[in-house]
């Protein structure tokens, strides 16, 4: 299974990398479907734990793939997964950026931007749903997420670290209370 998971996950990550329109958050749903529900490589609790770790550490949430592959195949797996996650989208963006830099301000530039923006937003909303569903936190999850969103909306300058620590401490307090 370990050898199997080593390359299989990378082959899942390459197309996901090229589909992560609107940022890494848009592929969390796809990654969870493949790794937890279809392949059963890790449990949903494990996935949520790893997602929480990526959010508490610096770096994109998609690095949850680095942790999954580290669990399946060690250090080599972690490196291969990270490359599979970042190289395809990075190479594509680099090629497009280099080419289009000569066409800045042209009409197709705007068409592509306006056409892809709602696609990215829709995928991000799907990602939010996937994480909420597998968190199993019910009302508490919705409440903390809603409160964090409301506070960030009200105080846009607030640091992300403060919000994350606040969410952690609030949940710790509420769980200890209940």
């Amino acid at each position: 299974m370990e050898d199997d998971g080593f390359w299989s996950l990378s082959w899942i990550l390459v197309p996901l990398s090229l589909l992560s329109i609107g940022g890494g958050a848009s592929i969390i749903a796809g990654l969870e479907t493949e790794v937890v529900r279809q392949q059963g490589w890790i449990s949903s609790q494990e996935f949520l734990h790893m997602f929480a770790v990526t959010r508490a550490a610096p770096g994109p949430g998609t690095m949850v793939a680095t942790l999954i592959e580290y669990k399946l195949a060690g250090w080599t797996g972690a490196v291969v997964a990270t490359l599979a996650l970042f190289l395809p989208s990075s190479a594509l963006f680099y090629a497009v950026f280099r080419t289009s830099n000569r066409h800045r301000g042209k009409r197709w530039h705007r068409v592509l931007r306006e056409g892809l923006a709602p696609v990215g937003t829709g995928l991000m909303i799907a990602g939010v749903m996937a994480i909420l569903r597998l968190s199993g936190g019910g009302l508490l999850a919705v409440g903390i997420a809603g409160a964090a969103a409301a506070i960030l909306y009200r105080f846009p300058g607030l640091s992300a670290l403060a919000i994350i620590l606040g969410g952690g401490l609030a949940t710790l307090g509420l769980r200890a209370w209940g």
Binding site: A25, L48, H49, F51, A52, V53, R55, A56, G61, M124, G127, V128, I131, L132, S135, G137, L140, A141, I144, A145, G146, A147, A148, A149, A150, I151, L152, A160, I163, I164, L165, G166, G167, G168, L169, A170, T171, L172, R175
Partner: peptide, 14 residues
């Protein structure tokens, strides 16, 4: 605590 960190991260995505 980690669970709450994930919940708050969901809020940021929202």
């Amino acid at each position: 605590f980690m669970e709450g960190v994930a919940f708050a991260a969901i809020g940021m995505l929202v």
